[in-house]
Amino acid sequence: MARSVLALVLAGSLLGLTATAFAAGESSHETPQPPRQKWSFSGPFGHYDRGQLQRGFKVYKEVCAVCHGMKYVAFRNLTALGYSEGQVKAIAAEYKVQDGPNDQGEMFERDGRPADYFPTPWKNENAARAQYNGVPPDFSVLAKARGYERGFPWFIFDIFTQFQEHGVDYIHALMVGYKEKAPAGFALPQGSYYNDYFPGHAIAMPPPLSDKRVDYSDGSPTTVDQYAKDVTAFMMWAAEPHMEIRKRIGFQVMIFLLVLAGLLYFAKKKVWADAH
């Protein structure tokens, strides 16, 4: 008995020691956590909202694409947004794509075809750096390449709630998180802009969105917040185009495994009934 008390005391003191150490280690949170948004694609039965994706694509095409490429997404993929093959052909033809060499050995430009990929609007990273004061990241997987720390215990709950929208919450927050002026005492470097949610706050990208900048034909509000939501949803689709089928197959697999596990459980009971 005395010994088990000893073990408990040891465990307790170990916990206490480390807990004090943690408390000392907790650094002040400079960057606030992005607020949670409602996304149509979250959860086990999540679906992309086609209308939203098309609006988001419009924002990308008219605003973001000036600086940001999307090299892993092909025009043909846009049929998933609800566009017809003809519409996709027309969209592809709006872009110029380099092809070649032709019979004379020259590279040439031609209209895009559905099989082509979204072009990157700069020649190479050095050119981008010279022009934009940084390399605008490619949009293809950006929604999966961004995120934030959820912290204990939330990261454990996230397994069960299937919260996976760290990236889109962050990007949305970034879009609406610009401040006209940096807070007093913050030394904003030349050519940077102050953003609440960007790590370090000084971001090289000027505020890209403003109210009424992009026309919507479906009557959705033409506000920065709506643009941010739509383009972020579009980016999620670009990063994870097979999400809907993944979740659908996932549900079927779950049902199957539950049935199989149930059958195996009773089969196991029958088999072991002989052994007792």
């Binding site: 397994i159 299937q162 549900f251």
Partner: peptide, 10 residues
């Protein structure tokens, strides 16, 4: 399967 289909990047 939960991880693969629902939270594959977790």
């Amino acid at each position: 399967a939960w991880f693969v289909f629902y939270v594959p990047n977790y």
